[in-house]
Design a protein around this nucleic acid. Structure first.
Length: 128
DNA sequence: TCGATGACCTCTA
DNA sequence: ATAGAGGCCATCG
């Protein structure tokens, strides 16, 4: 496993393709996570942990979830492209957000069965 | 200051 | 496949 410094260098190209505008006053961690999520291509799915790693925050999957929860709606982040490492949608099956995520994923051609996508369908975000 | 919480993860068994 | 333990850390009451 590369050192954190080289990790950042590795992921820099990904961040550069981000379409998320910088929000003034936000922490670098939050901004980095939003950048990564905003760079996930249409039809592709990743996990909170992978997003955190790509943002230079290995081991901080929870912060990725927090960042998505607090993301300004104006950013129009493709939040639905992020699920847990197991492939499961991280919302109660009865929730409105759960249904919305399933709807959006299927609209992009992503197969969702029993509230989860195949782990094989998850991308590590390092090969973009 | 402290304990609880949470859009999570990894290792063990 | 499933379950528990530990780890992570920003937020909140």
């Amino acid at each position: 496993m590369p050192h954190k410094k080289s990790l950042n260098a590795l992921f820099r190209p990904l961040a550069r393709t981000s379409r998320v505008p910088a929000a003034a006053g936000e922490s670098v961690a939050l901004q980095a996570i939003w950048d990564v999520v905003g760079a996930i291509p249409h039809g592709q799915v990743s996990s909170y942990g992978a997003v955190a790693r790509a943002a230079g925050l290995p081991g901080r999957a929870r912060q990725a979830g927090y960042a998505l929860r607090t993301a300004p709606a104006e950013l129009n982040l493709p939040w639905h492209r992020v699920v847990s490492a197991s492939g499961h949608i991280s919302f109660p099956a009865s929730s409105r957000q759960y249904r919305e995520q399933v709807r959006r994923l299927r609209a992009e051609g992503v197969a969702v069965q029993d509230g989860r996508v195949a782990r094989q369908a998850l991308t590590e975000l390092t090969e973009l």
